[in-house]
Amino acid sequence: MDPRLITAVIVVVGVPAVLVGYIVATEQLLRLAPERVKPRIRPWLWLLPALAFLFVFLVYPTIRTFIYSLQNAAGTEWVGLANYFWFFGSSGALGALLNNVIWVVLLTVLVLGFGVLIAVLVDRVRYESVAKSVIFLPLAISGTAASVIWLFMFSYQPPGVPQTGTLNAIVTSVGMGPVTYLQTSAFRFNTIMLIIVMAWMWTGFGMVIISAALKGINPELLEAARVDGATEWQVFRRITFPLLAPTLAVVSTTVIITALKTFDIVYVMTNGAYNTNVIANEMWQEMFNFGNFAHGSAVAIILMFAIIPVMAFNIQRFRAQEAIR
């Protein structure tokens, strides 16, 4: 038998047992403590495993990476902000940053646009659940598998040879020449193609959440407007849309963060070639292709600072919700 199977079984059964044992044991120990201090110690014992994991895997590495970003590649000298100056002076890194900006804007527009459109439309058809499943399905698969699916869509054969890629077959059937979707970098065309792959995956996310919000709107509100003679467009524009706004903000923040962290699709489909690089892949290349941990660290910290304002907005919204509760 595979020894790894035994290990896995031990882990699956053993780790929960150890964790449960830990909580029970600490509670037994607490019995020895005076009644007054029990409630003061107990929460920290319950939090300890989570805080330990968070410290080792998120807090400590982030501090460490920040320190590396202020040192030279060998980690022997302090170089101040030199690695950050490198980033903002390197055309490759700035190109990746520009691509991330395009990713953020276009992915958000596509996911929100298609999300609202589909959520509103499927609300009015009887095969709603089937339609939603179809749109939602790509979210369940990996970016790697989605990339393979779309490599087939974008496949290019020279003119004259039968096109085996779906898109080029359509394009050539109407008399145009085949398009090199992933190699044409004019106007960042290929980056836009990569974003379409991501939008294909993430539209289902937007749709599901927007659809849930739509169903939460009181139908009498809409009917009252219709009775007063409002057109369907006016009902949507003046009532539905404003009521959806908070939900759209939530979807946007998630999609923006996803766009900033984009890695899989770029790594698998182009690996950053033809001006399609993004920050996450740039960091990977600095680390593993060039072995420059100082540059890699600076790129990672820049990525984090790009995410902070978006997440701060999210947390603020969360606290506002808490205040209402």
Binding site: F57, L58, T65, Y68, K261, A280, A300, M304, I308, I315
Partner: peptide
């Protein structure tokens, strides 16, 4: 703890 969601996994890899 929730704020740690801002940390991109990339910042943790090297350490």
């Amino acid at each position: 703890v929730v704020g740690l969601l801002v940390v991109p996994l990339q910042t943790t890899f090297i350490p």
